[in-house]
Design a protein around this nucleic acid. Structure first.
Lengths: 197, 197
DNA sequence: GAGATAGGCAAACGCTTGTTAGTTTTGTGC
DNA sequence: GCACAAAACTAACAAGCGTTTGCCTATCTC
């Protein structure tokens, strides 16, 4: 019985797992919960996947690689550092708004990855942060950014776009465009009006 | 046998629970894990507490009430809206850096509260956000802040200080003072240098 | 010193967990 | 309409969960 084309069955399970893990958390979500969503008995899931943590792995690493590949593209852009940072902020918001469950799981449930995947994941993330911070550092040196600690700036930016994942629901009163514009305004130009140079 | 004064025994358990829940997550942390940290068998914990979720409740609501009481004080300050918002940002950073485990649990594990506590908690938080957003709204009307969506501004600010909880460890290379100053600079004045008014 | 009490312990409870084994149903190609 | 494979099912497993019970022993009170 293949109600959905056979190759897609696993992907469907991973998608449902993403939503379930986001709602209840990885540990609190049981395979029987997942099976119910998929419309099957728990044992049947194992015809398609090897284990529960394979699901977590697939989700976390897919998201991680998406972020990294966009960062690589941005690094190679011909643009000012301010433009690169703006592009990365927009990229974050775009990925979050169109793949919210997976991003949420990758952000909040990665610590339940078993070794050696946990180490690999944190390594990828640390590398991402290091490269992003380097862009900010160079922007400061070029006089484009205020002379703040680059790590603090990095995490302030990343966190500020991360809340979108916690809070955003498609079809809410605020459009992705407004979201993007206002967050960018605050982070790049500040909340307060410029009064004196 | 009271190795620690009897009244403090429960508080000690709650503190250890906070650290454990932060590290492993509420669901993944077992009472046997907690017992080991406390230096006792799991059954003995029940001489001091009623249940596992009593621990979660105590942590979440203590943090919630701390935030709310500071907000009330700030609302009554005689100051500009920009000053009030800055005061709240400093307050957030201060609470996080001196009670990091509890804040982390309240931020990340609250969804495992059983009803009716879950509803009560989300109600308190929503009320907090509403009142904070009102300050930003008035700041915009007074011309102190840029004309952005107040909700977006609110969540951008809250998220930007929340990362401190995820990342901050006491005794790291960055001092709380630098932290406070740089985050405030970015959020209030923006990352980019002002070039033209 | 007697009695009360607080707080520890071992053992067990009923339940849920992820996962496996073995079997049966379903869909596909000839 | 038969054979093969994919994918479902039922039943069960060992382990771990939060929690209760009953008992034992230190420590404090009078």
């Amino acid at each position: 019985m293949a109600r959905i084309l056979s190759g897609n069955r696993k992907q469907f399970i991973i998608e449902e797992a993403g939503q379930l893990f986001r709602e209840k958390g990885y540990t609190a979500a049981s395979m029987r919960d997942l099976a119910e969503r998929v419309g099957v008995e728990a044992a049947s899931l194992y015809n398609h996947i090897k284990s529960k943590d394979e699901l977590l792995r697939e989700i976390c690493f897919r998201v991680a690689h998406e972020y990294v590949s966009h960062l690589s593209q941005t690094e190679q852009m011909e643009a000012t550092y301010a433009e690169k940072v703006r592009a990365l902020l927009r990229m974050h918001i775009a990925i979050i708004t169109h793949d919210i469950s997976a991003v949420s799981v990758a952000n909040n449930e990665w610590k339940h990855l078993p070794e050696p995947y946990l180490s690999e994941f944190t390594h990828i993330r640390r590398d991402y942060e290091r490269r992003f911070a380097a862009l900010i550092q160079k922007g400061i040196e070029a006089g484009e950014f205020r002379p703040v600690n680059p790590k603090i700036a990095l995490f302030t930016l990343l966190a500020a776009v991360r809340w979108v994942e916690i809070w955003y629901k498609p079809g809410r009163e605020i459009s992705p465009q407004t979201l993007e514009r206002d967050i960018e305004t605050i982070l790049i130009h500040g909340l307060t009006q410029a009064t004196a140079p």
